[in-house]
């Protein structure tokens, strides 16, 4: 099939960007979306043009590197990462808009590449259980009900891609933060730091350039790992609990 791509080009953070049109021909339906961009890039290189920068690594939906707005939808038409999207989801003659994540919290580095280090800083603020190497008790010392451990796993599958932020009209990082709060808060090992964790993570989230959460649910609708809105309720529950227990908000 033949397609027209309108792609966001931006040389560097300081320079202004713009949409540029490209025509791609002979696209196979079995190609992945990123392979289609690879083919375009090889052509651009041979023509002496600057290839399109985009993040990717595993190309199997698990590292969280890739992320594009495709026709205004984070990761495109399938609820999966863009590296898992195949061209059979498109038709001959389509015009496709391709843009980077757009959020104050994710400044553009180049073209379709953004800086998501704010996510790491949120984890760094409290998204962990303090368990210095070598201090761990025998793994079977604390049984964990299967239901809790399964629910913790569901929350823990977040890959940190940032689609939730990109999809949110407020640019909120709530689904991301909540997934870690829920994962660790559901496990017995996570209890001692539970109050402090949520306060510090939310505090850091507010200190970054993310908007507030107004429970619209656009995040969960695009999340490639299907993280549910319930995780946000869990976060709010923990936050209230911590504040009620007399904790002082970190921000």
């Amino acid at each position: 099939m033949n397609l027209t791509l309108k792609i966001w080009r931006q040389v560097s953070p300081a320079k202004k960007g713009k949409m540029v049109s490209y025509h791609v021909t002979d696209v196979s339906p079995d190609m992945s979306f990123l392979e289609m961009l690879d083919v375009l890039n090889e052509k651009l290189i041979l023509d002496g043009d600057d290839p399109i920068a985009f993040d990717h690594d595993c190309r199997e939906g698990i590292c969280g590197s890739c992320g594009l707005m495709i026709d205004g939808v984070a990761h495109g038409p399938e609820q999966a990462t863009v590296c898992q999207l195949h061209m059979r989801s498109f038709s001959d003659g389509d015009v496709i808009d391709i843009e980077p994540w757009r959020s104050g919290g994710f400044p553009v580095v180049k073209d379709l590449v953004v800086d998501r280090s704010a996510f790491d800083r949120i984890i760094s603020a409290g998204g962990f259980i303090s368990a210095p190497t070598g201090t761990a008790p025998e793994a079977h010392a604390t049984p964990v009900p299967k239901k809790d451990s399964d629910a913790a796993f569901d929350a823990a599958t977040c890959i940190g891609c940032g689609a939730c932020v990109a999809a949110c009209p407020n640019g909120s990082a709530m689904l991301f933060t909540a997934s870690k709060v829920a994962h660790l808060g559901l496990l017995p090992q996570g209890q001692p730091e539970r109050d402090e964790r949520v306060l510090r993570m939310v505090g850091q989230q507010d200190a970054e350039d993310f908007g507030g959460c107004s429970n619209i649910g656009e995040c969960s609708a695009v999340c490639p790992k299907g993280i549910s809105m319930e995780t946000i309720s869990r976060l709010n529950h923990d936050l209230l609990g911590a504040l009620r227990a007399g904790a002082v908000p970190a921000s």
């Binding site: 962990f128 259980i129 368990a131 190497t133 070598g134 201090t135 761990a136 008790p137 025998e138 793994a139 079977h140 604390t142 049984p143 964990v144 009900p145 299967k146 451990s149 399964d150 913790a152 796993f153 823990a156 994962h183 660790l184 496990l187 090992q189 996570g190």
Partner: peptide, 22 residues
Amino acid sequence: AAIIDQAVAQGVPFAREYGGLL
């Protein structure tokens, strides 16, 4: 064996059986 202990202490959600054990 110590790796499993360490990972569990960090909150790695390994698969568990109904009795709550790994």
